[in-house]
């Protein structure tokens, strides 16, 4: 599924995740976040950069990992990315859907 976001053609998987994390920009993140009613703050951006970095390193993404990043904690993640903190953070960060259970 292709969509134009922030002036760029971007390919998404069927469940709404970007298929190529390289084409991600902060402008795209701002637009994606808006679709979920989220206005990105500096803290959001720091979380997105963190999950992108960990994904590049090949680390399995979990909410616990983000919660122990020093940027935020698990409770605040539910405020920053309501209802589905890990999935939403991954989606807005342009990385694939987290495959773990935690």
């Amino acid at each position: 599924m292709n969509r134009t976001i922030a002036g760029q053609h971007i390919e998404f998987s069927d469940d709404g995740f970007m298929t190529d994390m390289q084409v991600w920009t902060q402008e795209i993140a701002v637009e994606l976040a808006k679709e979920y009613g989220i206005e990105l703050s500096e803290k959001h951006i720091a979380v997105l950069e963190f999950v992108r970095k960990k994904h590049r390193e090949g680390v399995e993404m979990t909410l616990r990992l983000v919660g122990s990043s020093g940027i935020t904690d698990i409770k605040e993640m539910y405020v920053l990315f309501p209802k589905r903190p890990l999935k939403l953070a991954a989606l807005i960060a342009g990385i694939p859907k987290p495959s773990g259970c935690l």
Partner: peptide, 17 residues
Amino acid sequence: KGIPGTEEFLQMITAGG
């Protein structure tokens, strides 16, 4: 596997409501 201990796990669940 990165699974927390019991107390931390309980805190994770209540953190999410």
